[in-house]
């Protein structure tokens, strides 16, 4: 189980990182084209926006593995006993899975409908916008389910950010 969680976390952040790098490269190319050739690229804006969807929806799977989505921390905020928070956490995870399942089914239904709609600049199929939504929500379902089982079994959860020493995944 930890191996699955580990694979999801690493794979997700790898894809998200590549997407972020690709956004940088594409927009960098856009600036270069305009400054040096005077002509704009037709596809850069649309392609960068597409990478953004992969960055966010696939990247969020890592957050789900590590169970670090931004939330009010009941233990810190209201001094709620850990045991009650643990029970609440089980309920929260079930609700998250339900929400994610609805999103996954939605994306699954949308994909065939938009398969033959082209994006205006790149002419890529609009379905490319919904693959990350589908894959991301499925990964988040698996990750949340693993955390759910770990919580019931009281085994130690996946380390929030064991592989680096910066702890907050948030930025303003």
């Amino acid at each position: 189980m930890n191996a699955i969680a580990n694979t999801i976390a690493r794979g997700a952040i790898l894809v998200a990182g590549i997407a972020l790098f690709a956004i940088l490269a594409v927009i960098g190319a856009q600036i270069a084209a305009r400054v040096f050739t005077g002509n704009s690229l037709s596809w850069s804006d649309e392609l960068a926006r597409l990478f953004f969807l992969y960055l966010v929806f696939i990247g969020a799977a890592e957050t789900s593995v590590r169970h670090t989505h931004i939330a009010v921390d009941l233990k810190d905020t209201f001094r709620l006993p850990g045991e009650i928070d643990r029970l609440l956490d089980l309920g929260r995870m079930v609700l998250c899975i339900a929400v994610l399942a609805i999103i996954a089914v939605g994306a699954w239904k949308i994909i065939p409908v938009v398969e033959n709609m082209q994006r205006p600049a790149t002419r890529l199929s609009t379905a490319w916008m919904y693959y990350p939504v589908l894959v991301g929500s499925l990964l988040m379902i698996v990750a949340t389910a693993i955390n759910f089982i770990a919580c019931i079994a009281r085994t130690s959860p996946y380390p929030p950010f064991a592989d680096d020493n910066k702890d907050k995944s948030d930025s303003n």
Binding site: G38, S40, S42, D45, E46, P120, A121, R123
Partner: peptide, 14 residues
């Protein structure tokens, strides 16, 4: 010539 004109982000326009 060289006029910087906004066009819809769509291949046919560009």
């Amino acid at each position: 010539q060289g006029l910087k004109i906004r066009v819809p982000p769509q291949e046919s326009w560009i």
